[in-house]
Design a protein around this nucleic acid. Structure first.
Lengths: 143, 143
DNA sequence: CAGCAATGTAATCATAGTGGTTACATATAC
DNA sequence: GTATATGTAACCACTATGATTACATTGCTG
């Protein structure tokens, strides 16, 4: 998993947008207050989410952002892919020694394993949608 | 997944030790040449693997390292846990705004999701042992 | 149309993590 | 006792991250 917090913050941002359905679009300023960070950080994420087609933003007065699709149609994997650009598997950039039987053969084996591990993680993220997140939050609000 | 290469290098190191079963213990110098890195980097990993009980090392002349268990009894998850110390889920250290319904409730939800994703990855890593890695390498050596 | 309010994005900065390297103390075989 | 190996601390260069400032751009609204 990526060691940054972009995914976590992006889910938070999207959760805000989901709970604000039917309300005027949320400004990056407003969202930033909920996340407790700088509005530009939020706008960067919204920009990435927008390029992925998950969110649409409007400039100008009474502008802001809203989901571009149904909450049930956006999975956490979509969000992860949108904000965490695809770096390959975490292998050393220095190639191993091809003169050693291990060095000559370990690379594709490691790539395969790391890809499989990431696929497992992805499958898990794909199982949850923004609608599920919203439901979890609502459940905690009115117990 | 961690964004460092420790896991990948550690698997390489362990693969070397596995293929050298019944040979004199491997020195960090020798292993480093296979990985194509500095011996100290290898020793750091061997130290962590040793503390996890996966490897044993011997100082002094004709010293070196060897597996502490059967290769079939060491999973890639064991190696990952040994060299990538457990940082929690990647959440922002700045707590979200408790006055917002989302900010007040998103934290445990995110933790749950990230834990689940990591568990899926772990389950995948657990399915492969060092014996499997060694077999894959041997298969590529004599096709 | 004027002006305000919002996004989009570049540039900069402090901080932290990573891996490579040197150095040296310690242990062990011969 | 000496050569050889591990175990670690210390330091360095490089990179990623997230916060921040600044400013251009867009669009509503009076």
């Amino acid at each position: 998993m990526a060691r940054n917090c972009r995914f976590a913050v992006a889910v938070h941002v999207c959760a805000v947008l989901t709970l604000r359905r039917d309300d005027p679009p949320a400004t990056s300023d407003w969202i930033a207050k909920s996340v407790n960070t700088n509005p530009v950080v939020v706008r960067r994420l919204l920009s990435a989410l927008g390029k992925a087609g998950l969110v649409k933003s409007q400039r100008g007065t009474s502008g802001g952002s809203a989901l571009a699709k149904e909450a049930a149609a956006i999975t956490l994997l979509d969000i992860s892919r949108a904000v965490d650009e695809d770096e390959g598997p975490p292998l050393p950039q220095q190639e191993p020694n091809p003169a050693c039987p291990v060095g000559a053969n370990i690379r594709p084996i490691l790539t395969d394993i790391l890809d499989r591990a990431e696929a497992a993680r992805d499958r898990e993220l794909q199982r949850t949608t923004l609608a599920d997140i919203a439901a979890s939050i609502r459940a905690r609000l009115a117990p």
